[in-house]
């Protein structure tokens, strides 16, 4: 049953208008960032001179900046809240699909769209940066040898986005509305974490170590990046904490969903 429901969920998620709007926006933003990187003198000085280097940088940016998190929150919150609005939850549940299966397949069905965020980032960067590099240097540098690294960055970045998708699902189930899911998710992602970092910075000392455990601080740890403001977790620990956050949010969402009365 899980696989069959997942197939249906995947079809529905990939048909979501929100996903395609997000991908279009992401493509436009990526194209703009890559153009600025290759044209503005200050940015150009620090930019890698190979295509693989620029792609890796943009993929890291998609995974670690709020951009990837925001896209995941908006997509997950919207697709789940729409299920309540459209009453498609009623239809599926009344056909004998269990609530737990429905919710967890929803999360799993978000993996492909999240992966698409990174595919689009990579593709647009390749096209735009490739153009600039070829015009300027007559070459785009070696790419084939860097493919494993690029895939690793994209894969880990996508994995790091999962807690945000789970958080949005939890908020959508709790509030049964897109406003609560997307608005609440964005507030927590964009302002909540920032506020926490500022408070910990003011306290200083050991308190600052806690910043590394925030969902938004885990991907740098996962990618083994150096961060000035705090010491990121080791990759293994970061991966475990990401799984823990995702699991916690999903278990809470499942418990709430299983207790809900679904009426008009």
């Amino acid at each position: 049953m899980f696989v069959n429901v997942l197939r249906a969920q995947q079809t529905k998620t990939l048909a979501s208008g929100v996903l395609w709007v997000e991908l279009a926006a992401l493509a436009a933003i990526t194209a703009l960032l890559v153009t600025l990187t290759n044209t503005m003198t200050e940015l150009k000085a620090d930019a890698p001179v190979t295509l693989a280097g620029q792609m890796n940088e943009m993929l890291q940016h998609a995974g670690t900046s709020t951009m990837g998190h925001v896209l995941a929150v908006v997509l997950a919150g919207a697709v789940m809240a729409q299920e309540y609005n459209w009453r498609s939850l009623h239809l599926w549940l009344s056909q004998g699909v269990s609530r737990t299966t429905l919710l967890w397949t929803k999360l799993v069905s978000l993996i492909v769209p999240v992966a698409l965020f990174f595919v689009v980032t990579a593709a647009v960067t390749a096209a735009v940066a490739g153009g600039f590099l070829y015009v300027e240097h007559g070459s785009i540098g070696p790419v084939a040898g860097e493919l494993v690294d690029l895939l690793r960055t994209a894969g880990l970045g996508a994995y790091g986005v999962l807690p945000f998708a789970a958080l949005a699902l939890l908020l959508a189930v709790t509030g049964r509305s897109m406003l609560v899911a997307v608005g609440g998710g964005l507030a927590l992602t964009m302002m909540g974490e920032m506020l926490f970092v500022q408070i910990m910075g003011m306290i200083g000392g050991r308190a600052l170590d806690l910043v590394a455990y925030l969902p938004g601080s885990l991907v740098p740890g996962l990618l083994g990046m150096e961060i000035e403001a705090y010491q990121p977790l080791e990759p293994g620990a970061a991966a475990a904490v990401i799984a823990m956050y995702t699991g916690l949010f999903m278990v809470a969402a499942t418990l709430i969903f299983r207790r809900q009365d679904l009426h008009d």
Partner: peptide, 22 residues
């Protein structure tokens, strides 16, 4: 609500059908 397996042999229409509008 926690065990709906018996409903796999049931068809239902309750209120406005829950379809994907797009």
């Amino acid at each position: 609500p926690r065990d709906t397996r018996a409903l796999r042999g049931v068809g239902s229409l309750m209120g406005t059908p829950g379809m994907v509008p797009s």
